[in-house]
Computed example of a mutant assay.
Amino acid sequence: MSIQLTSLTKNYNEQIAVNSISFEARRGEIVGFLGPNGAGKSTTMKILTGFVKPSSGLVTVCDINVVENPIEVQKKIGYLPEHNPLYLDMYIREYLQFHASIHKVEKNKIDYTIEKVGLLPEVHKRIKQLSKGYRQRVGLAAAILHNPEVLILDEPTTGLDPNQLVEIRQLIKELGKDKTVLLSTHIMQEVEAICDRVIIINKGKLVVDKSLEELKSGEKQVIEVTFDYKLEEQFIKRLPNICGFKNTIENNWILEFETTKDMRPVIFDFAHDNGLKILGLNKENKNLEKLFQELTK
């Protein structure tokens, strides 16, 4: 198992940052690691990389105990922290040569990595001359230079323009084919575009650990409809697949359906059969973003 956490807990004096969470991740899997600010994501990632010691619990990376052998674990990990630390006065190639010397990586890997992350157009510059997006690429290049088995990426797409987003997304997906990738982000579209699985933590506790496919299959359809006449609840309950409803104001209803079938034609037929007119109709799916909001608000 590439990553395995068992009952991981981290306390800072009286504050519980991570509260007995357990999960695992395998090779070839890209896992979205989500949660609001202060949920414990960065603390968990720092524990995985050996920068912070857990208060209790077992943490292994590639079957190596993180507490007992942090240096061996760090050889297996490529880490891009949220606040990407760089030596700004260095040139890009110089900075990567520095990392290559630490990991004892052959110099020919530097050119390969520079090209892989799209740094060639800027390679002649010092890091301080780069945009935020290109600085992120330098950090990602340093993380993958030694070809680690596990990649831990904390907000890797911060500061990227739309074109760069597509390129880095594709790169992460490619890297995820033969590595384990743990990806933290606040951008739900990134998770839906990249990840195979989603883990959500809130206030230090694990609240969701499911494949993206499972989450999507469980999406609920929400339709807001306004009729020309006020209905009683008993009529709304007759709608097929309805699992929730709320009468907001007068003739306006928020209807929730547990089905992937588009329920708007059904509502039109329902209105026709009951002699009603529809004055307004709006549909939305309860996507990952809404699920996240419900679980963490």
Rank of each mutant, 00 (worst) to 15 (best):
E24H: 07
G28F: 04
N13M: 00
V31M: 03
N37G: 07
S42H: 06
K46T: 08
G38Q: 05
A25L: 13
K53W: 03
N13F: 00
V18R: 01
L5Y: 13
V52N: 06
G35Q: 06
T60Q: 14
N37Q: 04
A25Q: 13
V59P: 13
F23G: 09
I16L: 07
G28W: 08
G50H: 14
N37A: 01
I30H: 00
G40A: 08
S22F: 11
I30R: 00
F33T: 06
L34D: 06
S55C: 12
A39V: 08
T49G: 13
E24M: 02
L5E: 13
E29M: 07
T44A: 09
R27A: 11
I47Y: 01
L48G: 10
E24D: 11
A39R: 02
V18F: 07
G57K: 01
G32F: 01
N37Y: 01
T44V: 10
F51P: 10
F23V: 11
N13G: 04
F23D: 09
G50R: 14
T9V: 03
Y12H: 04
T60Y: 07
S56F: 12
T9D: 01
V31H: 00
R27G: 10
R27K: 15
T6G: 03
V59N: 12
G50V: 15
S42K: 08
L58T: 14
N11K: 03
M45V: 12
G35W: 00
